[in-house]
Amino acid sequence: MKSDMSTIVKTVTDFLFGFIIIFGIYIIIHGHLTPGGGFQGGAVVASGFALLFVAFARTFLDKKPQQLYGLFESVGLLIFISLAFLGIYRTFFYNFLANSGGLFGMKITQGINPGYFNTAGVVPLMNMAVGFEVACGLSLIVYLLYRGVIEEGEDGE
């Protein structure tokens, strides 16, 4: 545990990390069209970051990303709550952008349609906020546990 993992793990992580992150971001931003959403996509992104921590331990422990993760997690939750508050003139969690014609406000027809991206009002924005929060929060948990393991190992030897 003194240094990074072996070359095989590093090469496979180099190859796979981009695909995992892109897949997670796809699940997050297409949450209102395909199965999935903020939580699921955030979990996928966080598992990609966990792979990155395990493979490149040294590099990431020196960078100390926990402040950044904590900041982004709080920002995600704050965006979610403020989006819910913006519809307070009707009710809390009122979908004020849906069917308005503007941003994410395209009207769709009942039944089968091609799945337009520019629909569903605040739902995609909330998906992105929650995905941000979940991805950063779970990555922060894994990072802190892994840092504890490595520092414990260095103290013992």
Partner: peptide, 30 residues
Amino acid sequence: QIEVGANNVVTSIVFDYRGFDTLGEATVLF
């Protein structure tokens, strides 16, 4: 599908009709 405009009915329930549930979940995770 008409009211929210989302094809995915599950997401429209989770983030729109039952938004408080998602808020509680996010708070628990936080």
